[in-house]
Design a protein around this nucleic acid. Structure first.
Lengths: 395, 395
DNA sequence: GAAATACGTTGCCGGACACAACAAACTGCT
DNA sequence: AGCAGTTTGTTGTGTCCGGCAACGTATTTC
């Protein structure tokens, strides 16, 4: 059994380089003066670090506009957003999305295409690779790609990016990571993650949850999953399947779920449940769902009942999760955002009746700040993570 | 917003000292040769580290018995188990337990006394302090106490050790940490933790879960709680209340629970539930519970039904937790151990029908290795943690 | 234009670990 | 008993990293 010893000296350097690069990646252009105070390092050290990063082409330095204060103005360190980038993919139920995301988090370019139902990984990979090729001409000369990140609405094996189970897309043991690697033929690491996980990651890094170290990001599309950050670190579980809260059973012997079990939470708050309760058995997709919320807002009784009921179950499950995790914040993303906004009263009420008072004290309910791009930005964040852990080797 | 920079040089030293001390603390006497390979440090560095620790009186070095192999025998580094110790307390429903635990994890001395029902923190503290005074004469001259750890069956605020809610003991907002500090009058830090958390901690450090970084330790007494370790670190949540799985609601509008909610998991698998289902409404306590398991083993139909039912609910909840956390191991401690052993078939069956197959792949169900002392050893571990994080300053 | 302010740069220092050479301790063989 | 071989402790040297202080520089204020 190997115990981890403390870092060696070059690991200090790596971590400091990573911390500096991460700061400008998340917070944008920053003066060296601010970096010294934030990172707690000496001026001379910051100078040496920025010199290294500039030499590697990861950041650039420039003079600031106007300080307004006395004294020599501090140099501004900014991420090389145009020259250092990652490709981000998002595999959704009926859409495939691709983007080129620059260091710093800006979406530089994007492509979207419809995803035919029953499209498997082997068929999706060429389409995704095609989107990349389309974006290629716009890439400036000398720019470097540091990685590829993929967000998938399903359970992803951490080690190799195999999608174990994704009822919405119909995928079972689809090797999207390997398929993309073969198709792209570029020599950068490809990281695959669950969409809720990566969206949580993004909101934690640069969204509503910035500074919160214990959060639950609830993400709904057809199903429901959660990206959980505990103690500042992503909760992946042993194989990478952590956060499958949609398959927490809330009704014993309840409605049959696509996972094979019964009474899973998502059978009560998922897309199907809400549409069925609203009497729209044949409808599906996000637009149909929004129509239900819209109808409820306009006074449609049946839609209102459906929303209230689903909101009640939403509060029920959130309360359970709050009791288990004692989070600082719960974020409602994807369709859960709409459901939460349409039924906040029910959610609050359930939460207060079931949640332990100590756990309720500091928990805040929020909606995402990053909007529809959260999955893409999060997928890119996945790819950047390697660079930020070791800027000089990975760059 | 302050980002954490990499460690400075003296933090490296601290971490390496801590890693070495932790290794001998957990694994017992170890040769310097083994330490070099395990910690990945140079011989000379190990020599310097052990010299520091020996100087601080935390470890001692000696020549080994017989190696049987050629070459100069490597010095054996052993923890100063007699000279460096912590006090550990466990506040249980009807017992107060105290122990002196040496570095290395050995229980050097112990005292137990009955806990009258309705004994509050202010009254318990003098009793606990008295137990400490009784143990004082046996402390060798020159020995140093590095801290006090307390395990309580309730929700504990991380910051100050306030017991927010503990239905079994009847405590609500009882400041056991502060009361003990005032009563003991010794100048060492006092750390309070939930019994399930500290037991999980102990099993992770030196029990069945050694080497497992994602575990759920389910602990039952009157209620049910969990100590959760995710990614190798304790899941405490924002305020320290994480792991309250006993109050995950499994039956909507179910049986009234002491927490104020309804249908909590512990109303189905807790002591009361099992005794009531077995027709023993007036009984309570661990002995009564064991009598039920005993009766079931001897063929008592009503007891068997009660055990099967509770086991079924046990599997139900565990499956939910497995889906949420994707742990490597689930450990059944306290009364959950007895329940699990008496109903493993039901647990397995429920787990298989509800659990996601990917999450079931690697999960192992186990019983604790540390036995009845887990709470005390874990409480001591809580106290040692500060020493292990910075051996020279805290020693 | 001088003083004040804030910052970048340079050289030096101490600490921490790796490495190599040497000394010490033990086994096994003769 | 003595010697070769093996493994380890010890010591001195080298490298790297960050802190520190002195100095030079850029900007604002008066």
């Amino acid at each position: 059994m190997a115990m981890r010893a403390g870092p060696s000296q070059d690991e200090i350097r790596r971590q400091n380089l990573g911390a500096l690069l991460r700061y400008v990646h998340v917070h944008g252009a920053t003066t060296r003066a601010e970096l010294t105070t934030v990172l707690g390092l000496n001026r001379s050290t910051i100078g040496a670090l920025t010199a290294d990063l500039t030499g590697a082409g990861l950041v650039s330095e420039g003079t600031p506009r106007e300080t307004g204060r006395a004294g020599r103005p501090s140099l501004v360190v900014r991420p090389e957003s145009e020259r250092v980038y990652a490709y981000a993919y998002s595999v959704e139920v009926d859409r495939l999305r691709a983007a080129r995301v620059g260091l710093g988090g800006a979406v530089l370019d994007r492509r979207e295409l419809d995803r035919p139902r029953n499209l498997l990984a082997g068929e999706a990979a060429p389409l995704l690779a095609g989107a990349l090729k389309e974006m290629l001409p716009a890439v400036p000369a000398g720019a470097v790609c540091v990685g590829v990140g993929v967000a998938v609405c399903g359970m992803v094996r951490r080690d190799d990016g195999l999608v174990r189970l994704s009822p919405p897309t119909g995928w079972v043991d689809e090797p999207i990571g390997a398929a993309l690697a073969a198709e792209l033929g570029i020599d950068v690491p490809i990281t695959v993650g669950n969409v809720a996980d990566v969206a949580a990651f993004a909101e934690h890094a640069r969204g509503v949850a910035a500074g919160c170290d214990n959060i639950i990001y609830l993400y709904g599309d057809v199903g429901v999953g959660a990206g959980i950050i505990a103690g500042g670190r992503r909760l992946t579980g042993h194989g990478g399947y952590g956060g499958e809260v949609g398959h927490m059973v809330v009704v014993r012997e309840g409605t049959r779920c696509e996972c094979g079990s019964r009474g899973c939470w998502e059978t009560e708050i998922g897309e199907h449940a809400l549409l069925r309760a609203a009497g729209r058995h044949d409808a599906r997709g996000r637009d149909a769902l929004l129509a239900v919320f819209d109808a409820a807002g306009r006074g449609d009784a049946r839609a209102q009942t459906a929303v209230r009921q689903a909101g009640d179950w939403l509060g029920f499950g959130v309360a359970n999760l709050v009791n288990i995790f004692n989070p600082e914040m719960v974020i409602f993303g994807g369709t859960m955002r709409d459901l939460y906004l349409a039924s906040a009263a029910q959610v609050r009420s359930r939460l207060n009746s079931i949640g332990l008072s100590a756990c309720l004290e500091h928990v805040r309910l929020r909606t995402p700040k990053l909007g529809a791009d959260a999955a893409l930005v999060g997928a890119a964040e996945l790819a950047f993570e390697r660079l930020l852990a070791d800027p000089l080797d990975a760059g």
